[in-house]
Design a protein around this nucleic acid. Structure first.
Length: 292
DNA sequence: TACTCTGTTGAATA
DNA sequence: TTATTCAACAGAGT
C-alpha cells in the first residue's frame, strides 16, 4: 500500500467525518447491492426480533424471499426500496449507522449484520449497530403505501420553489435548521447538508421559516437544488470528498472556520442538533435580536 | 469505571 | 395543528 494511504476497500466508510447517511450517502449505499441485481436469493439469514424489523413479519420474509430475484432498486431521500420478483419488496432506511455491502459467498453474519441475502457467489449484507434504521418487508402488486406517499424528491421537477415556500409557511415558527431537517418537506436532508445549505444561502439557522423574504426563499431553493445535485454527483458516485471550500469540511470540530473569510464558527444546538454557522455570512435575524 | 457525545425518526407531550 | 423533547441503540472518546 502506498505511503499515506488509508486502508479502504471499495465499500468502506468515507474519508471525511460524516458516516451518517443522508441523500447522497444513501444513493451510494443503494448501489452497493447492484452486483446482486438479476440474481436469485438462495437463502436468507436474519436477526428476528430485533428492533430493526419493527412492523414487519420476519417469518413471512424468511418464507417468501428465498427463490425470488432481485430486480430493481431505488432511493428517495433517505429511503430505499428493493424490488424482487413474486411481488416482494424490501424497504431500507439506514438510520444513523446502517450500511449495505456485498460480501463473498459463505459469509458468516456478525453481531450487527441483521439481514443477509445469500446469492450464488455473493451475499448482500445489511449492517446497523444502533438500529435507528429500519427494514420493511412488503408483499403486493404495487409499491408499499409508505413509499407512494413520500414527498417530492429534492432533485425532481416536482420540488418547485412554490412547493418549498408553502412548506416553509406551514411551519413558519420553526427555525430554518429544523425545517430543513423535516423529512416531510426536505426528504434526504440531514445535519451536514442543512448546515451547508444555510451557509450557502447566508441564512442564520435560527431564522424562522416564515420570516424570510420571497427573494431569500427563492435563493434558498436554488441552494437546496445545488447542494443535493452536487452531493449526489460527488458522494453518491463513489463517496468522494466534496471539494475544498465546502462548509462540510469545517463544521465537524470546534476549530472549524468559514471557508469564505476564515471566521471561527460558533456551534449550538438548534432544532435539536449540533449546528455550525458563520456569524459574518449568516447574521442573527433582526426580529430575534429585538425579542431578546 | 462511569459518564458524555454522536444524529434519525417517531411517539409523547405541550 | 404545529412545535418541542426524548427514547430507542451501541460505541468511541474522556
Amino acid at each position: 500500500m502506498p505511503t499515506g494511504q488509508t486502508k479502504l476497500d471499495a465499500a468502506s466508510p468515507p474519508s471525511y467525518s460524516s458516516t451518517v447517511p443522508e441523500l447522497a450517502e444513501v444513493e451510494f449505499y443503494r448501489k452497493q447491492w447492484n452486483p446482486g441485481l438479476g440474481g436469485k436469493i438462495r437463502a436468507v439469514a436474519l436477526h428476528s426480533g430485533k428492533r430493526i424489523f419493527r412492523g414487519s413479519d420476519t417469518s413471512t420474509l424468511e418464507k417468501f424471499l428465498p427463490g425470488a430475484t432481485l430486480q430493481k432498486s431505488e432511493a428517495h431521500g433517505k429511503q430505499m426500496l428493493f424490488r424482487f420478483s413474486k411481488q416482494l419488496w424490501l424497504g431500507v432506511h439506514l438510520g444513523m449507522t446502517g450500511t449495505l455491502r456485498v460480501a463473498p459467498s459463505g459469509f458468516q453474519p456478525g453481531k450487527h449484520d441483521h439481514l443477509v441475502l445469500h446469492q450464488r457467489g455473493r451475499a448482500l449484507v445489511f449492517n446497523d449497530p444502533r438500529q435507528f434504521g429500519r427494514l420493511r418487508f412488503h408483499q403486493g402488486l404495487d409499491v408499499p403505501g409508505w413509499w407512494a406517499k413520500l414527498p417530492p424528491a429534492l432533485t425532481s421537477d416536482s420540488f418547485t420553489a412554490a412547493v418549498m415556500g408553502k412548506f416553509l409557511q406551514r411551519h413558519r415558527q420553526l427555525p430554518l435548521k429544523a425545517a430543513l431537517l423535516h423529512q416531510a418537506g426536505f426528504p434526504g436532508i440531514g445535519n451536514w447538508m442543512a448546515d451547508e445549505i444555510l451557509w450557502r444561502g447566508r441564512l442564520h439557522p435560527r431564522t424562522r421559516a416564515g420570516e424570510i423574504s420571497e427573494k431569500k426563499s427563492r435563493e434558498l431553493w436554488r441552494v437546496v437544488r445545488f447542494v443535493c445535485r452536487e452531493a449526489c454527483k460527488i458522494i453518491g458516485r463513489d463517496f468522494s470528498d466534496p471539494p475544498r471550500g465546502w462548509f462540510i469540511h469545517e463544521r465537524w470540530t470546534a476549530k472549524g472556520r468559514c471557508p469564505r473569510h476564515r471566521e471561527l464558527l460558533p456551534r449550538a444546538t438548534i432544532g435539536g442538533r449540533t449546528t455550525a454557522w458563520c456569524p459574518k455570512c449568516q447574521p442573527e435575524p433582526v426580529s430575534r435580536l429585538r425579542r431578546s
